[in-house]
Design a protein around this nucleic acid. Sequence first.
DNA 1: TGTGCTTATCGTCAGAGAGACGACTATGAT
DNA 2: ATCATAGTCGTCTCTCTGACGATAAGCACA
Lengths: 256, 256
Amino acid sequence: MIVAMSRYDPSAFPPFAVTVDLVVLTVRDHSLCALLVRRGEPPYQGYWALPGGFVRPDEGLAEAASRELAEETGLRAHSAPGHEAVGPGAAGAHLEQLATYGHPQRDPRMRVVSVAYLVLAPDLPTPRAGGDASSARWAPVSELLGESPADGVPLAFDHGLILADGVERARSKIEYSSLATAFCPPEFTVGELRRVYEAVWGVALDPRNFHRKVTGTPGFLLPSGGTTTRQGGRPAQLFTAGGATVLNPPMLRPDS
Amino acid sequence: MIVAMSRYDPSAFPPFAVTVDLVVLTVRDHSLCALLVRRGEPPYQGYWALPGGFVRPDEGLAEAASRELAEETGLRAHSAPGHEAVGPGAAGAHLEQLATYGHPQRDPRMRVVSVAYLVLAPDLPTPRAGGDASSARWAPVSELLGESPADGVPLAFDHGLILADGVERARSKIEYSSLATAFCPPEFTVGELRRVYEAVWGVALDPRNFHRKVTGTPGFLLPSGGTTTRQGGRPAQLFTAGGATVLNPPMLRPDS
DNA sequence: TGTGCTTATCGTCAGAGAGACGACTATGAT
DNA sequence: ATCATAGTCGTCTCTCTGACGATAAGCACA
């Protein structure tokens, strides 16, 4: 048992390992998917897990998250405006801190505190496996969170819990912010944006009311001038994300 | 320079110190106040800082936050329903994880990652100083965040940033949850609850519309039967917090 | 024993926004 | 040419909010 010790005593403190774990979400053909890597070594060998890794001695937490993301997906992320921001990269995904997990027994080998980050990205090609992960894949979150009748194999460590928190954060945050555009390519149509909301929330939205809402919210969407028919049907106007970050009034999620 | 190392390599990992810091907020005569302790030793000797301390090897993060809170204020907190919950205590304050701060140079002596927790408590007697803090006090956040013309002495470490994040979280969270009741004693009147909103947001609210809103939201308030005149004027009905945690539709903050 | 001050509570009205849904437009497929 | 598909514009109704009048029920003091 440790007796009470001085705050920040530099000579004696219990050492912890600190890692970052990434909840990387994207929308692939009408469903919300998370990036998973397969563990190639014990513990939880062969299980699927969230990508992540150790924080290095000289890097910040967001910096570590951003580095791991680049290593595993090639994505460059821009942090939400705030602390520990990393310079905006080329093909930008949204990155924000999610929460920190530190149960004493969450890793059977040693005391590990993991800072989870949430990444929202547009649809990407199938990920390349990197590092010590023997493979990587996009998995629909509905199969992972027990929302479908037979939920799949559980994730390694407490990653199922972390994933659930990340999904919940994404679901609530697109309600009152313009974050849903992070799931879209640089130019997108109102219909594509609507399908993002539908995939993340798992509901159907009225196309007419949705159109009125998003085009009527100042600063949410900027017309880019062009049109496209890539979804079939009548050509749709293309937009880019506007400067607004907070939606007031929010998008309302049905029933909830 | 560290070369790429295996994920969770148990034999070689950079050691970090992990601490918890507490943003303890309360409402004292019409203003939102934060609990500060004075540092008795370097670095930042003599500066005001957030209460906090090391996480012990065998305790969880929320557990450490709860323990530090009890040590410094005597408060027992119940965590929000969720992970790492601690058993509900007697005189309950709300406790939830805020964010984690890990700039490599945030502590001049060593690499410290600090997990910040947000505590919302009803008005308390002047705090007793505990541990190695030579004194403690409630400070109005408006004096600390540069919202008033002359902001006071800056806080130790990055605690000014952490405090700002905590205040922002509290301000936004009372909008869409029933969390404002955490600032109230077990029984309270609609007027007392309104003064909580006014203090936290720094605005004046219309008493009639506020009354209609909170009494019309199912599950927010439960009439306890009694009345009180402790605020002067006509006796007001007493309520306790209802079971609802999410307000739908939310309380609307003026202008913002 | 009023008179005034304070706070609580109820009501009314106009305007903004959401949900439901009809109608029309502009493409590609057959 | 016709149909299927998706996009876009309008309308109607209902709910909720903000502004604000009116009344109720205590206390302080003359």
